[in-house]
Design a protein around this nucleic acid. Structure first.
Lengths: 218, 218
DNA sequence: AGGTCGTGTTAAAAAACGTTAAGCCTGCAG
DNA sequence: CTGCAGGCTTAACGTTTTTTAACACGACCT
């Protein structure tokens, strides 16, 4: 059975924000509404979403910057921009960031929905987000349950262990930016958090040492 | 090396058709132009395409019908509609068929290109699993794994070593501008970074000394 | 010739990273 | 309320990577 699709909605306009929020919720989506880019990023760091709808013009952090940050963490997540401006340059800049689509306000709700569907259909190939379980050699990892299945038995992961490993396996094979990772999980990139992360990297390496799947740092 | 992307372009308007055809070809795509839906379908049956751009209003077979037919053969191929009508219903019907996007005429060429890129980026993820390996005489270099294969054995490269060597081999034979290179890897072109780079150049030269493949400077 | 500019090279200093262990919270059982 | 366990952070120390410093050499300019 399909799990509920989680949408991150970043929209500073109270009116439109609430409207979209309830509209999408009625359509069966799970929606988190953030009033500005910074809050949106915090949300994004804390949970895993399936879809992002970002207003371009927002206080604290604009939509494009937010998209860039989000893309550092998740290269594949679909992003749809909402823009009041109809300038060509804006649109293009958005697409360069890997936007999947954009809509110019004002728009018809149904069309938004249609576009979401269109994008999702396209991405569902890659997004095998059913029961997401990762197979790392002989080890299995279930981020939902926060459990690592080793030969010797199951190992329950702590919150941080889980977040970090999850992020790592999601971007398996690719290179993660240290600082982006830090901001994603610890929320802030400073010396001590960095050290803390190193500690976790060490822990995970130890846990996964039965497989020659190494984590490399940037 | 990337294969050329093959686009099926179905457009009955001679003017726009030719225009798009040459425009896309100039952008490096391989394009087949069909003057109506039926011809387009024949094309599609005969070769494999990576992308479809379909006009909605066409003689013989309209774009939506064509899309349905195409979808029977290939469920995943990206489809982008061109429509002169701006009616909401049309748009929706298109999306229901699994359109990935649509554009309303008239449109700006660059925007079309941007949308194509946006859609391709999605599908590309699956395909783009080529691992680039360079052969430098008897030495092999894999930038992905950051490993240099020498006679004596493998040498793991550090981040900077890897970045620099990668840039160098990518532009093998050509002349790289020192300052551009610096900005590309170090992000900033100042005295110390320049010195640092010189140090790495020296390192790489030492590593590659078994081959008379020298790096020349600006 | 003297000077400085750009680069080559090597060595030392500094920063980043890996690892282990000790310290510090916080929630909870006794 | 006290102590203990689990989870996270900080400290401390070793190793690797990157930057900075130092010296050198030839091209070019005056």
């Amino acid at each position: 059975m399909d799990k509920k699709v989680k949408i991150l909605l970043a929209e500073d306009d109270d009116n439109l924000g609430t409207l979209l929020n309830t509209f999408l919720k009625n359509k069966g989506y799970e929606v988190d509404l953030a009033r500005n880019g910074k809050l949106a990023y915090e949300h994004f760091s804390n949970r895993s979403y399936d879809f992002c709808i970002l207003d371009v013009m927002m206080p604290e952090m604009d939509g494009f910057t937010l998209a860039r940050e989000i893309r550092e963490i998740d290269k594949r997540i679909p992003i749809l921009f909402l823009t009041a401006k109809s300038m060509k340059d804006d649109k293009l800049q958005g697409f360069e960031l890997g936007a999947d689509d954009y809509m110019t306000k004002p728009f018809v709700m149904e069309e938004l929905l249609a576009r979401i569907h269109a994008i999702m259909r396209r991405t569902e190939v890659v997004t095998h987000t059913q029961n997401e379980v990762y197979n790392l050699g002989s080890i299995r990892f279930n981020p939902e349950l926060r459990i690592l299945f080793l030969q010797e038995g199951e190992k329950k992961l702590t919150t941080k262990e889980n977040q970090l490993l999850h992020l790592l396996v999601k971007n398996e094979g690719e290179i993660l930016d240290r600082h982006a990772t830090l901001r994603a999980i610890w929320g802030d990139d400073n010396y001590f958090n960095g050290r803390s992360m190193d500690v976790y990297i060490a822990k995970l390496r130890k846990l996964l040492k039965e497989e020659p799947a190494i984590e490399i740092m940037n």
